[in-house]
Design a protein around this nucleic acid. Structure first.
Lengths: 204, 204
DNA sequence: ACCTGAACACCGTTCAAGT
DNA sequence: ACCTGAACACCGTTCAAGT
């Protein structure tokens, strides 16, 4: 006789999870709510995913991929300092567009699978290379971590509502990024603020 | 007849919650586990706290107070740049000593009560004044946010295990703090690295 | 091969009743 | 005035049974 045909898919399940996460936070990502959204009963989800934690990890991974696709092209600007600033501002814009998912990317996961995603994207090859172009190859990794840590910290505090002492928050972010990029530039290799004609990889 | 006498207290309940949090993460902070620890049944906890969220908020608040007490004295060093570096390193040490609680301070809370605590401590009066001494009064708030965001971002990524590309993590933090403090100093008011005899509050 | 209903363990929370 | 046992709703997860 006819075996039951699949009524949903892993992608659909993850997409439903992302919607619920953005709409109501992690606590709204219930196996029951996800199941209802994809037109299935909760136990069926376990054909696609081992657990709710695995679902959250899958959401984090999908988000990390989106973020990576958003940022990567920006690292190619021949003006390395401008590229680094652009990446930082694009990260913040992404976080504003997907606040809960960005939070999840860094923070929420129990167990191991958690920040793997975030670290792989945000301190990944293209960003480290870019940081090396700005700060000099000897400090590539440290410079990437410096910018990443600032951006992540600023945005997470901002999303959590930690900036309630007034002041222009956009301006504070721009100030921070400018200070960082300028400092890294002047410590790093050659011309700090002069755009370079093309990427260099071993400048003194 | 004799009314039942109190078998525990709010302080004891919060202390039990902090122990459980540090030992097993937020999911280990169960009303049942807390109740067992203080020698009471779970429903009795609701005489002290409105909800589990209120317990987490109380834990965050207590942690914020500890952190504030740890950092505040360091802001008094007449050498403002040295003081700012010391605050940053002390914050990281605190986070290493109380990783789950520090995470909670910034991230975990549902509802409103959450990051109130963190923001009130980490971007509070003494820190803003200190940042103003380093970067000049016009940029006090932005400079405080810059250092705070970096420290919070770095430490949270570190605690989440996001730094697995090798490199000396201690050194990366020191590098970041030094770059930041130097950059703020040279942008800010008067003598960047020369210690000042006593705090100033309105330097050009 | 995927689906479902029923069931289990666990948890936050309420409440009537005890002292 | 604080304590408790019992109960409820909700949730993640398992599993035997259906197609």
């Amino acid at each position: 006789v006819s075996p039951a045909r699949a009524r949903t898919s892993l992608d659909e399940v993850v997409a439903a999870g992302r919607d619920l996460l953005e709409a109501g936070g992690p606590e709204a990502v219930t196996m029951l709510a996800v199941a209802e959204r994809v037109g299935v009963k909760a136990p069926s989800l376990y054909k696609r995913l081992a657990s709710r934690d695995a679902l959250l990890a899958a959401i984090a991974k999908a988000t990390a991929e989106d973020l990576g696709r958003t940022l990567e092209p920006l690292t190619r600007d021949p003006d390395a300092a401008a590229a680094l600033r652009a990446v930082a501002h694009a990260f913040r814009a992404f976080a504003h567009a997907h606040p809960r998912a960005t939070d999840l990317l860094f923070a929420d996961l129990p167990s191991e699978a958690r920040t793997t995603a975030a670290s792989n994207v945000l301190v990944s090859e293209p960003l480290i290379q870019l940081a090396g172009r700005v700060a000099g190859p000897a400090h590539a990794l440290e410079a990437a971590r410096l910018v990443t840590a600032f951006a992540r910290g600023f945005v997470s505090m901002e999303l959590a509502g930690a900036f309630r002492l007034g002041g222009d928050v956009d301006e504070a972010y721009r100030y921070g990024i400018d200070v960082l990029v300028d400092a890294l530039s002047s410590r790093g290799g050659g011309g700090a603020r002069r755009p370079r004609a093309r990427p260099v990889s071993g400048a003194a």
